[in-house]
Design a protein around this nucleic acid. Structure first.
Lengths: 238, 238
DNA sequence: AAGTTTTACTTGTATATACAAGTAAAATGC
DNA sequence: GCATTTTACTTGTATATACAAGTAAAACTT
């Protein structure tokens, strides 16, 4: 018996509008069609349209203005997830590349793991991998990631080089990051980090540990990252 | 003619439930009254109750579970606003004190101000103050704050020592932080910072610049902070 | 006693409707 | 020409209702 995946109307409207915004059909500052126009288009009533629009507003895609309409917002990095920006405002002309130092492997959690783990999580072990990110061929950010070991078919063989981890989790496994916390230190680069990032050991480095919760309660993402902020900085919006 | 401040029902419900949660009448894990019970209590219908509950869910006060109810969440530091935590889990037995180095004064924006300012904002000038925060009598965090110069009566004379800036803005001026962005660097302490935080100039320091938007579109808060993360760290949840 | 079904409750999705209130441009009056 | 009023549109708040679907405990069956 196939589980019929009924797709709810308000969710379809959300996806439709979101993709139109992401595609660029609606740009920053544009007005979306009015609630009544959307009612006609989707053959529904304002309550349902408003359910979709208020979700989009909460996700930061639009802002709503009483008496005027739904105004498309500036694209956001979203959810406070950290992104990497250069001191130059324009990121378009800078080349961001990634190399995988450790391909995803199953292993036990490290004994000295910084965040507290649940019993189930501890017993199941984790998937570990590490990446080094370059801006214009200069290594800038080293990141070690641990993911709770749940069933993620073919995850190990996926190419993490060019695609965002978050995109892969969303597209292939329907896993989305919901919330999280991060802890931040400034440290001196140790021997290992200074070698990886090609800097002196006395160089100041941002060290950050993050725990991200997802919509799949079994899946949590832990990452520990080291960033050389001499010519770049870490940026976060919320 | 006095502008009658009609208070909307769904907003009253939000405030009621929020304060019951904040007071501790409902604790983490508790179930709120069901939607139908709330309908009776407030003499309204489920659509209005659900409007309030979904707002509370978005604010992180509750999570909703299909077929079960509205579950009260863990109190959050909220909105990704940075807080200061020690390496010891228990913050209760550590003494956090603040001294004001520069009392709030009106002044022009610095010429080299890091964030872009709107024309109105630039013309109006700003309120500036700086604070130094201690944990167990050790200086740990130095913060310079600029607020858009709008009408905040008696702000300069308020005591910023013991109360959170956010609390003052909320309680006295109904200004709440909505969203923001932050940029993070690791740097070596310069002469000024090393003197303030009582450390060597070579010491690594977290430098962070934040811009916070509020529900009052004229009011933005800019802060630049320097933190010694040798025995403490900066923590952020979102 | 153990597994299954029923029941009573919960939240989720949706339709249909009404009036209030903000916005901006067109129509009006002087 | 310029200020005011009207109008047509927008989103905001609210009521009333219906059925779908998840949850958990009670009732029933074997």
């Amino acid at each position: 018996m196939s589980k019929k995946e009924i797709i709810h109307l308000y969710k379809k409207i959300i996806e439709d509008l979101k993709s139109l915004i992401e595609k660029g059909d609606y740009k920053k500052g544009d007005l979306l069609p009015s609630e009544n126009e959307l009612c006609k288009k989707y053959e529904t009533t304002r309550v349902t349209i408003r359910q979709a629009l208020s979700a989009l507003a909460n996700m930061g895609y639009i802002t709503r203005k009483h008496g005027k309409g739904s105004i498309v917002s500036e694209p956001k990095s979203g959810l406070g997830i950290l992104s990497l920006s250069g001191v130059t405002a324009n990121i378009g002309d800078r080349k961001l590349t990634t190399t995988i130092l450790q391909k995803p492997i199953k292993k036990a959690w490290p004994d000295d793991f910084f965040f507290d783990l649940g019993e189930d999580e501890l017993a199941a072990g984790c998937i570990f991998f590490s990446r080094l990110r370059y801006i214009n061929n200069t290594p800038v950010l080293y990141e070690e990631t641990h993911i709770s070991n749940v069933d993620l078919p073919h995850f190990s063989s996926r190419t993490l080089e060019n695609k965002s981890l978050f995109k892969i989790l969303k597209e292939h496994y329907k896993i989305e990051v919901k919330e999280g916390e991060q802890k931040i230190w400034a440290i001196h680069a140790d021997k290992n980090i200074s070698h990886l990032l090609n800097i002196k050991t006395s160089h100041p480095i941002v060290h950050m540990k993050r725990r991200l919760q997802t919509n799949n309660k079994g899946v949590r993402i832990y990452s520990s990252l080291y960033c050389n902020t001499e010519e770049n900085f870490l940026q976060d919006s919320f």
